[in-house]
Design a protein around this nucleic acid. Sequence first.
DNA 1: TGAGACGCTGTTTTT
DNA 2: CAGCGTCTCA
Length: 733
Amino acid sequence: MQPSLFPSQNQDRAGARGAFRAGDLNRAQLEAATCMGAPVLVIAGAGTGKTRTLVYRMAYLIEQGVAADNILLLTFTRKAAQEMIERAGRLINDPGRKVTGGTFHAMANILLRRYGHHLGYAPNFTILDRSDSEGIINLIKSSLELGGSGKRFPSKRVVCNLLSRSVNKCTDIETVIADQYSHLEEYRSELERIFADFRKFKLEHGLMDYDDLLVNLRRVMTEVPRVREEIAERFNHVLVDEYQDTNPIQADIVRLVAAGHNNVMVVGDDSQSIYSFRGADFRNIMDFPKVFPGTRVVRLEENYRSTQAILALTNAIIDKAEEKYSKKLFSNIDGGAKPRLQGTLDEAAQARRVAEQIVELRGRDVPADEIAVLFRSGFHSYKLELELTNRQVQFEKRGGLKLTESAHIKDVLAYLRVTGNPGDHLSWNRILLLLDKVGPKTARNVLDRIRANEDPLEAIRAFPAGKSWRAGLDKLVELLLKLRAPGLEPVAIFDMVMEYYREIFERIYHDDYPTRSRDLDQLRQLISGYGDLQSLLDDTTLDPPETTDESLGGRLGSPPAQVILSTIHSAKGLEWDHVFVINLAAGRFPSCQPFMTAEWEEERRMFYVAATRARKMLYLSYPREVMSFDRQSRAGGMSPFLAELSPALLDSGPGGGTTMARSKLSPPARQGGAGRGGAPDINLLTEGVTVRHPFFGEGRIEKTSGKRSVEVFFPRHGRKTLHLDYAKLEIIG
DNA sequence: TGAGACGCTGTTTTT
DNA sequence: CAGCGTCTCA
C-alpha cells in the first residue's frame, strides 16, 4: 500500500535507545553514515555494504534527533525502500518511527495529488502505463489520419520511445530525431503534432504517464516557490540509492528538495549503471559534487559479499570497460570455488542442466531462496520454467509479464478507473469497444458526446444507439449507476463490475477464458487488501503485481521461500549464495541490437551486475546454438563478454562442452563475423562504401570513428554507430 | 460500420 | 509470434 508522505499524525518523539553501534561498520561506511553538515556522495562498489550504510545513516539521523518524518529515502523499487526502512526501525528498536520512502515516481505521485492543481491537474488524475500511452498515441494518430496514405508511419511503440527518450534526456525532439531516429526526419512535423496533442489530451482528461510524474513534480517545484519550500522543509534529510541510474529530471528533483538545507546523501556505482534507456547516464553521478559544492566523497571498496574467486572474475569483467572512474574491489572472504563456465548443445540442454543443478543444490539442503537464475530478457527463461515445473521445483519469476498487462485485467481496471476519474477518456474508449457491435468509429462518436456533456453517464444514456447494441448500452448504464453509490469499498466495486463484465469476458475470450479467469480471481484477492480506490489504481501502475505472484505472494503474509528467476534489471541490489547466469550466448547477451559503443558498454555492465549478485558460487552458462525468430537455427557460440575473459578465472568443468569453449577463448576479434567469414578489414570500410547488416539491411558508411567502429546510415533505421568486432557487416560495394 | 481472415514486419531492459 | 494494416463479407 501507498507509503503516505503526509501521514495525519506523527509518532511520539520518545528517545530512541542507542542501538546504533558504530562497530558494525568499517571506517568508510561509518564516515558516510555519520557525516553531518555537508552533502555526501558515496561511491559504493558491488557488495560493499551500501544498503547497510544507508540503513545505519537513517538510524543515526534519528538518534541525532531528526524526526523520522523528515527523512526521505528514494530507491529504485518500493520493496527496497520498505526493507531498508524496516531494518532501520529494528536498529533503533522502534519500528513505529517510519521514514518516508519509495521510488521517485511514487513520491511524485503523492506530491502531485497535493500540488498538481498549480499545473491544472485535479487530485484524481489517473496514471498511465506504457500501453495506455501507446493507446492514446494511436487514438490521436487515427484522428489525424496519418496512418494510411501508403507511407509507413512509425508504430505507436516507436513514437512513444522517441517521446520518452526526449523527455528523459531533456533533449528536444529535433535533436533526438537527428541523433537516434534520422530515418524519421520526414515525419518530424507530424510527430511534433502528435506530441502536442498527446500533451493536451493528458491535461484535459486528467492523465499522467510515468514521465509526466517526474516532469510535473519538477515543474511545480520550480514554478511555485512556496511548494518547493514546503517540500524541502518537510524532507530536510534526503537519501538516494542507486544514484547512477537517475536521469537528469530525477537529479533535478533531488537538487530542488535538498537546496537550502543540503542534507543529502546519494549512493551509487558507475559500474552498475544499466538504465540508460530511461535517460540515466552513469557520468551524472560524477557531477553530483558540482551540483552540491562542498560534497564529501566517500568510497566503499571492501567487498563483503563474494568470495575472492568470484571477485577476481567480476573485476576482470569490468576491467574491460572502456570508461570507468572507480575502484578495484577486494574481498576478505578468501578462496572459494572458481565460477563455473558451462556450454551446452542448445537451449533445451541448458535448461535441463541448470534445472538438474538446482535440484542437486536443494538436495544438499541449500535453501531455495539462496538460489537465483538471471538472464538478459524475460523470455530467456521459458524453457527453464518448463523444466523446473516438470521437476516440481517451485520458483518465482521477477520481471516477467505483469498481471496488469493482460487485456482482461485492463478491461476490468477501466471500469474502476472511470469510477475514480470520469474524465479518463482512454478508459471510456476501452469500455465502449467492449460492447458488441461497437467499433472505433461508434466509440468515437459516443466519446464526443461524453466530452460535450457534463456527466458522462447522461451522455451515454442519451446516445442514439443502434438497435443491435441498445441493450448492451443499457446494461452499461445500469452498472455505472450502481457504481455511483457513495462510499463503496474497492472490492465491492470489483464485484459489481464482474457481474456485468463476465458475459463480455466469456464472449471475447471464448478460447482461453478459464486461464484468464484465474487472473481475475487473483485481482480480486489483491483488491480486497485495499480500502481506497485511488491507491489501488496507483499501485496497479506504479507497482504492478507480477503474473506469477500466486495469489498471496509478496503482499499479504510472507511468501514461501522459492528459487528466483529474474531479469538482470530486476535483480539489481539483490544477492544470493548461488547464482546462475544463463543464455550468455552471442546474439542473446548482449541482446542482438546493441551496435553502438555506448550500448555495448552498458550490456557489459549488465553482465557485471549479474555476476556480482553471487556470494558463494557463480555458474555461467550458454547454449552453443540459439533459435532465431524465424526458426532458422543459428550458431551463436559464447557471448563475446565471456570470450574476452582469461580462462584461468573460470572452471570449465567436467564435460559440458569445454572443447567449444576452449576454441573460442582465443582473441575475440575472430568472433566478429561468425557464419559470415570474419570481420571485414577496417581499411576497406571507408566513407561511401555500401555494407549489409543482418538486421538493418543495406546502408552506406558515413564515417569511420575511433579504432574499431564506423557510422553507417541505414535508410530504414537511421544512423548507427557499429562496433566492428561484433557487428556482422558485409561489404557490398 | 464491425468482425474476422490473411499477410507483413520487427524484435530488451522498467517506473 | 504478436501486433500491425489491408481486405472481404455481413
